[in-house]
Structure formats: structure tokens, C-alpha cells
Design a protein around this nucleic acid. Structure first.
Length: 865
DNA sequence: ATGCTGGAAGGAACA
DNA sequence: AATGTTCCTTCCAGC
């Protein structure tokens, strides 16, 4: 298909120009991939025939990303093992202890003691106000603020930490704490029991405030201290309503900060959170922002605390400390948290909860403190409402739930956790200073759906949700984003927030009566200020352009033998910035599924965000043409486009899904493809992502696709890898194939986007699914990538030459990498892509990615060419 | 009156 | 060091 078909595009919406336009086809060109990130998918699709096979989509997904993914095939827990990938393994596992506690990350964590402490103790402590350890720490902090401290501490510690700094976090935490409180209280235990679930509702019920029971809590806590108090107390907070949830947190915070705006934020945040409370101190200390964040939690404490103190505290306690310790990097925290979490989760949830709650309470205010103690501690309980669910369960106590940064499989034995409906590839996250921007939606207009297959027990379970990174390499809690609980009339799913480590978790009941399926209409995404997070001590990630996330779902199943099986499924990547949304083209429909390679036929593409500069590129792979769209980022687009275009055929086969994983999920979905077809029970994969990250992660695959430049390859690379890895997924690629011959890509030149610019290529942006992006971005690594689209565009240019070059390069680069690419490259290769070098180091990975891209590009190119 | 959105201004961070 | 571009965060306004 080199040619081009003409395409007219109508943009449905108003998008500006968007409406109908004729797209140009580029046949050969490469696009920039820029956005690739988003795009990932596209490429993928191309090829990938992969296999759809993998049972575990998730894996696939990951795979996709990673490349290696390989394995994905297996869904299982194995994942862990599977993961083999070195990467994975190393990355992931390493650090972690079996328990889940990441060893590496932070020792402290270990130190922490939640686990150590019996929950009871904890509670007691809590009750005591927590002076104890954390509390102690807190106490310290506390000192400053009397009551509050106590509360905070707990929460702060952990929560705070996580949140990072941000007040939000804190807030969040608070909120959460609120939740926690609940949790703590009986409720909390979500972990425990799924029960919670019930709780949710119940909670809601119970909570006066809240309408949504849950909701409120959240909010409140966070919110203002006072409010917080209330909130906590009451979910009441809910009442607050308005933004309670997020807002609260944020809102509260926001208000604080918000009001103040950043500048103020310092105060604001911190203050808000903390300070608000009471003490003045809080915020002050920290640097504004920083402090704020952490502060929030820590804030109080921190303030007082000196590093030494902190250290001591840490030593003592931990959690709290951690938080406090702003110093402690988030990661660390996470770890710690994780550890704790684990504990908490299973076992300690309370502890955490308590802690959190407390924290929350504390955080909020002295009042809260009072409240807490009273309320929460006492009152809450009273609050019968929440308790319901939460309390009850606690089934798991085991301390060891896996840390949030652990990679878990989506399938294990008979169990398979799948994301039946993927979230849209774009969701504008809200700042604390803003009101909630609603729950994450699915392409179809509904909401993401998660289902646990293979669970035959009558006891409900708790589905945990947190915001993870979109990195292919490693799936871990995102430092700059927090899940935000949404409540209201439109929310049908009960939920409650809990702080885990520094991350907020949303706990949602998985009920047998609902076939262990949950509609995730209660999850929004809160953006924390980069400055707040970056200030954290341990934080190493850069917020700038790090705007892609994934919804990560976990479920812990306690088997008859007492053993707990933890499954995890991650969604496709979601772009959370405002910007991208606008820029990404999205193809919702295509009038023709296929056309002669000779061209001459008109194709009508309907979608969004088509710009004059947007181009549609057809790539002929083998025989089957594939169409890709590459909107820059949009996965959607990609997804859509790709999907559609190609087709459906593909779709069918493979499903984009895999490929798309991320990005497009929507598209895919939208496209009508089920994201995870697989979903079926069997499928593990479904969530491609899900899984285990392990798998993938490797960025390699994804990779960025693109590099631009020069050769870049583009997307292909990633895709390729994806393909390879998970054929299935990839497939999206193409499964097997059918079609894949050519692909159509829509490119935008987004303006300036770098990528575009780049190479002569035209920069297309393939729409690859996230994966690529992610990969590219590896978390750490590519900052740019991360996000996006633009930056790293995948630019892929596809010129033949380039392609070749790419290929070569790939070769050059490294074997493994090369290999991958190489494999991939082959045109059609298809997909084949190579296997990934398992062992590649990330370093290599990057290279590899490029290579792959190149390969891909080349591949695609070939066709064209 | 709220909550959710989309859009955009202003300023900071980068290149 | 200056300039231009991109990105981040906060506001505003409309539905």
C-alpha cells in the first residue's frame, strides 16, 4: 500500500480542523514516533502476530512493552519467574523480598515495623496516639502538634511519604487515612477482607456524610485538616462534597495550596495538610513545596525533626518516619511502605490503616486527632458504617503482601485477574488545586472493568487499585500521580482509599455475586506537583514529561491452605497531561478495511484530533496491509486507527489489544476490539499489563520507538518486540497474521514536536501503544520519553534507508538488541521480532529499543518501500 | 449548587 | 547569556 489511499477524515467532534480532512498517506515514511509513546500500539499492531497466543494478555501487555515479554505467555505467577527476563527479574524482584518488601529499596522499610508490631499494638499505639514508634516519630513531630501529630504520624508517615509530598498525598493519605481509618477501623481491612467491599457501600451508607460512604472519607482527610478531620471522621467529609474526594485532598490541599497557588503552595500544601492543622510549623519547614508534600505528612513532624531525629525515628519506626523523612525517597518509602503495606495489606492493613488513619487523623488536625481518637478510634468505629465491610474482613493478615513495586502475575493457577475493559488512553489528571476531573473512563464511554476469573469461593475479595508507572520496564507506583477516589451519583462502585506506602490505593470489593467483576467508575487520577515530589529525598524520578500512568489492579486471594495468591493486572498506559489530549489524533472509524496496494481507493477515517498535518501512512508488510495511525500520542488513535484500519481483521485476530496495550486500549476498545479479548477467564493476559510486569518492562521492546532520528526506527522497534514477545498481544498486531502486511499510519506533525522534526522522516507518530513509550521511558531513564509523545517521538521515520540503517544500527548496537530489532526488522518480520534479548540491560534496552524501532521501521519500510 | 470539562494564561524549565 | 519552545500548574468558564 504504499500509496496512499486517500483518506478523508471526519473528525467527529468539533475538533477543530479535525473534521474531515484528507489524510495523506505516507507510505513509507516513517513517522516520527514522537508521541509514540502513545502510539505504541500502532506499530505493534503491525505485526505482531504474535501471538496472540499468550494466554495471559497481561503478560502480553507487558510483554509488549518489554519485549521480552516473552514469556508472557505464561500468565502465571510464574510470571515472576518468567519474568525471567532479566530485567524483570532483576528489576523487579530483586529488591524485593519475598515478602514483598523490597529489600533494596529501603531498608528502612524493613525497619519499619508495622509488621513488627502487632497490629494490635499498632492500634494501641495508634490509639495512644501513636507516639509509639512511628508515632514516636510522629510524636516527635507531634511534639509540635499535639494531637495532630499523632495522627499524622501514622498516616503521615507512610502516606505522606508516598504521596509524596504533596499535600495531596498527604491529603490523600489523609483521605485515605480517612479511609484508612475506616480501614483501620474495622473497615479498613479491606485487605482483609474483601469484605470491604461490602463496606464500600456500607461504608457509604454508614457514613452519613458521605454519600458515598467511601468517598467522603477520602476527601475529608485530605482535605483540610479540619475538614480532614471531618472527613475522616466523617466521611462526612463527603459532604464536603465537592471535591471532597480528590479535592479534598487536593481540594483541601488545593484549597490550601490551591488558593495559594503554587507559590503558596508551600504553605498551602503543607499547610494545608498539615499545617492546616495546627501547627504552623509544618509547612514551613519543608521547603515549601517539598515540605509541603512530605510535609504534609511529615510536615509536622518533619518540621521538628531534624535529620538526626528523622533518622532516629526511622530507625525506630519507619513508616511514619519514612514519610517524615522526607528525605526518604519516595521509592524508599514505597518500599518501605510496601513492606509495610504488605503487612498492612494483609496483615496490617490495620496497622497501616491505623497508621494511616491516624495519620490522617492527625494530619488533618488536632481536631482530627481528637476525632480520630475519638471518632476514628472511637468514633469511627462508631461509625458503624464503614466498618461494615472493612472491618470485618481482615482476612489476610499476613503480613506479607507484596510491595507495590513488585511485579506480580495476572494469572496463577486457576485464578486470572483481567482487565476486561481498558481505560482510555488519555485522562487528564487533576491537580489538588482543581476539582476532580472525574473517573477514568473507557473508550466506549463506560468505565474500565476488571474481573477475577477462577475464583469460586463465596467470600468477597478486595480489589486494589493504584496508579502505576507506564514504564515497560518496571511497573511500580507512580510518584507523581495518585489514584483519587470518585464518589457521587454516577459512581456505582463502592471504594475506599488506603495509603500504602506512599501510594494511595483504592480498594474495591470484588463480589461473587458480581462474578468477581468490578466496574471501575470510582477512580480518578490526581496529579501531584512535580516540585513537591521531586523534592522528596529519595525521589529520583523526574516529573516533567512523566505523564503516563497505568491503572494497576491487585487482588490477594487466600487459599484454603492459607496461602495467599496475589495477582496483578495493569492497564494500558494512560496519558494524563492536558496537552496530549489535544494533539493526538484518534481514528474512530475507517470506511475500508483493506485496499489494493496499488492504491487509488478512498478511505474515510473518522476520528478526533486530526490535524492538517496529520498523515496516514500505509505500510505494507507482508501481504496484509496494516493501517496504523499514529497520532502522536494517542493511543487511541492508534488504536483505533490501527485497529480499525487494519483491521478489523487484525483485530480479530489479535486484538490490538495486546499491542496496544496501552495506548490504545481505548482505541482498541473503542475500536471495538475488546481490549482484552481474552479476557475470558482464561486469559490471563488480559491485562496484559497486568501482569507482571515482569515481563516486560522491558522497555526494550517498546521502547521508544523511536528515536528519532536518524534512523530511528521507530516504533517499530517496540512494536516489534511486542510482537515478538507476545504475539498474542502484540498482535495487535497482527497476529498472525493475517494481515499485516501493510500498515497505515497517521502522523501528525505535531507541530513542533520534536520528533516530528526530526528526521526527515517525517515523523510519524505511530501510534504505538504505550509500550513503546514506556519502554522508552523507562522510568528512570528517559524522562523525555516518558511521556511522551512529543518528546520522544518515536519518530520513526521510516525511510527505507533509514530502515536499513536502523536495522544495521540495531545490529550494531547489540546483539541482543540487535537481535531483537533485527528480527523484527525484517519486515514482516515480522513480527517476529525477535526475541528479546532477555538479558539486555536497560542500557541495552534502550539501544535495543532503538534498534527495534529501526527494525520496525525498516520493516514497515520495506513494505512501503 | 456541584461536579466535570475544556481551554487557556502565566510562569518555570529546557534546549 | 539570550531567546525560543515546551511543559506545568492554576484559573476560568461552560455545561
Amino acid at each position: 500500500m504504499q500509496d496512499s489511499l486517500r483518506v478523508r477524515v471526519n473528525s467527529k467532534l468539533s475538533f477543530g480542523a479535525k473534521k474531515e480532512r484528507n489524510l495523506r498517506f505516507l507510505t513509507t515514511d516513517m513517522k516520527s514516533a514522537e508521541e509514540d509513546a502513545y502510539s505504541y500500539a500502532p506499530n505493534v499492531s503491525l505485526s505482531l502476530p504474535l501471538g496472540v497466543g499468550n494466554p495471559c494478555l497481561a503478560a502480553q501487555y507487558h510483554t509488549l512493552q518489554s519485549g521480552p515479554v516473552i514469556s508472557v505467555s505464561s500468565c502465571h505467577q510464574s510470571s515472576y519467574s518468567l519474568q525471567n527476563d532479566t530485567h524483570i527479574a532483576s528489576g523487579y524482584y530483586h529488591g524485593l523480598k519475598p515478602n514483598g518488601a523490597p529489600a533494596l529499596e529501603s531498608p528502612r522499610i524493613e525497619i519499619t515495623a508495622y509488621s513488627q508490631y502487632p497490629e494490635d499494638e499498632v492500634e494501641e499505639r495508634s490509639s495512644n496516639e501513636d507516639h509509639i514508634i512511628k508515632r514516636g516519630v510522629n510524636s516527635i513531630v507531634t511534639l509540635t502538634l499535639p494531637n495532630a501529630d499523632g495522627y499524622r504520624d501514622p498516616s503521615c508517615l507512610s502516606p505522606a511519604s508516598s504521596l509524596s509530598s504533596r499535600s495531596c498525598n498527604s491529603d490523600a493519605s489523609s483521605y485515605e487515612s480517612g479511609f484508612y481509618n475506616y480501614d483501620n477501623s474495622p473497615q479498613n481491612s479491606p485487605w482483609q477482607s474483601p469484605c470491604v467491599s461490602p463496606r464500600g457501600p456500607s461504608m457509604l451508607l454508614s457514613c452519613p456524610h458521605a454519600t458515598g460512604p467511601v468517598g467522603s472519607p477520602n476527601h475529608s482527610p485530605s482535605t483540610s485538616p479540619q475538614i480532614g478531620a471531618v472527613a475522616e471522621i466523617g466521611w462526612p467529609a463527603q459532604p464536603r462534597g465537592s471535591r471532597p474526594n480528590s479535592p479534598s485532598c487536593s481540594g483541601g490541599v488545593s484549597s490550601c495550596s490551591g488558593i495559594g497557588k503554587r507559590k503558596y503552595s508551600f504553605n498551602g500544601n503543607s499547610y494545608c495538610q498539615t499545617s492546616p492543622n495546627q501547627s504552623p510549623t509544618p509547612s514551613p519547614y519543608g521547603s515549601p513545596r517539598i515540605s509541603v508534600t512530605d510535609e504534609n505528612w511529615l510536615a509536622n513532624t518533619n518540621q521538628y525533626t531534624n535529620s538526626a531525629i528523622v533518622a532516629a525515628i526511622n530507625a525506630l519506626t519507619t513508616d511514619g518516619v519514612v514519610d517524615l523523612g522526607e528525605g526518604i525517597p519516595i521509592k524508599t518509602r514505597k518500599t518501605m511502605l510496601d513492606n509495610s503495606p504488605s503487612m498492612s495489606l494483609k496483615v496490617e492493613p490495620r496497622g497501616e490503616e491505623l497508621g494511616h488513619e491516624r495519620e490522617h487523623c492527625h494530619e488533618d488536625y488536632p481536631n482530627r486527632m481528637a476525632l480520630k481518637k475519638e471518632n476514628y478510634c472511637g468514633g469511627f468505629l462508631d461509625v458503624p458504617q464503614h466498618p461494615y465491610s472493612w472491618s470485618k474482613p481482615k482476612p489476610y493478615l499476613s503480613p506479607s503482601l507484596p510491595a507495590l513495586d513488585w511485579q506480580l502475575p495476572s494469572c496463577s493457577g486457576p485464578y486470572n485477574l483481567q482487565i476486561e475493559v481498558q481505560p482510555k488512553s488519555h485522562h487528564r489528571a487533576h491537580y489538588e488545586t482543581e476539582g476532580s476531573r472525574g473517573a477514568v473512563k473507557a473508550l466506549s464511554g463506560g468505565h474500565p472493568v476488571v474481573q477475577l476469573y477462577g475464583y469460586m469461593e463465596s467470600e468477597p475479595l478486595t480489589l486494589q487499585l493504584f496508579i502505576g508507572t507506564a514504564d515497560d520496564r518496571l511497573l511500580r507506583p507512580h510518584a507523581f500521580y495518585q489514584v483519587h477516589r470518585i464518589t457521587g451519583k454516577t459512581v456505582s462502585t463502592a471504594s475506599h482509599e488506603v495509603m500504602h506506602s506512599n501510594s494511595k490505593l483504592l480498594e474495591i470489593p470484588l463480589l461473587p455475586e458480581n462474578n468477581m467483576k468490578a466496574i471501575i467508575d470510582c477512580a480518578g487520577i490526581l496529579k501531584l506537583r512535580n516540585s513537591d515530589i521531586e523534592l522528596r529525598k529519595g525521589e529520583t524520578d523526574i516529573g516533567r514529561k512523566n505523564t503516563r500512568v497505568r491503572l494497576v489492579f491487585r487482588v490477594h486471594i487466600t487459599q484454603p491452605n492459607g496461602r495467599t495468591v496475589s495477582l496483578q493486572a495493569a492497564s494500558n498506559p494512560i496519558e494524563c497531561s492536558q496537552r496530549s489530549a489535544q494533539e493526538l489524533p484518534l481514528v474512530e472509524k475507517q470506511s475500508v478495511d483493506s485496499s489494493p496496494a496499488t492504491g487509488g481507493k478512498m478511505m474515510l477515517l473518522t476520528g478526533l484530533n486530526f490535524l492538517p498535518e496529520s498523515k496516514v501512512v500505509f505500510v505494507e508488510k507482508a501481504q496484509v496491509p496494516i493501517i496504523k495511525t499514529e497520532p502522536n500520542d494517542d493511543y487511541d488513535s492508534l488504536g483505533t486507527v490501527g485497529l480499525s484500519m487494519h483491521s478489523k481483521p487484525y483485530y480479530n485476530q489479535t486484538r490490538l489489544t495486546p499491542v496496544m496495550p496501552v495506548a490504545d486500549p481505548d482505541a482498541c476498545l473503542v475500536g471495538a476490539y475488546p481490549p482484552c479479548p481474552p479476557s475470558h477467564a482464561t486469559m490471563p493476559s488480559s491485562s496484559p499489563s497486568s501482569s507482571p510486569t515482569l515481563h516486560d518492562l522491558s522497555p526494550v521492546a517498546y521502547i521508544k520507538c523511536l528515536p528519532n532520528s536518524p534512523t530511528h526506527t521507530t516504533a517499530s522497534g517496540p512494536m516489534a518486540s511486542h510482537f515478538q514477545e507476545s504475539p498474542g498481544h502484540t498482535n495487535l498486531g497482527h497476529p498472525p497474521s493475517p494481515d499485516h502486511n501493510s500498515s497505515l499510519e497517521i502522523l501528525h506533525s505535531h507541530g513542533s514536536s520534536n520528533s516530528l522534526n526530526s528526521p526527515g522522516a517525517q515523523s510519524y507518530h505511530p501510534i504505538y501503544p504505550n509500550s513503546s513509550p514506556s519502554s522508552s521511558s523507562s522510568p528512570a531513564s528517559h524522562p523525555s520519553t516518558p511521556g511522551g509523545p512529543a518528546e520522544s517521538p518515536f519518530a520513526s521515520a521510516y525511510s527505507p534507508s533509514q530502515v536499513q540503517a536502523a536495522a544495521n544500527s540495531s545490529q550494531n548496537k547489540g546483539n541482543s538488541p540487535c537481535q531483537l530489532p533485527e528480527d523484527a526488522s525484517p519486515s514482516s518480520m515480522t513480527i517476529a521480532v525477535k526475541q528479546e534479548p532477555q538479558e539486555l540491560d536497560q542500557m541495552y534496552l534502550d539501544d535495543v529499543n532503538e534498534i527495534i524501532r529501526n527494525d520496525l521501521s525498516s520493516i514497515s519500510v520495506h513494505p512501503h518501500a
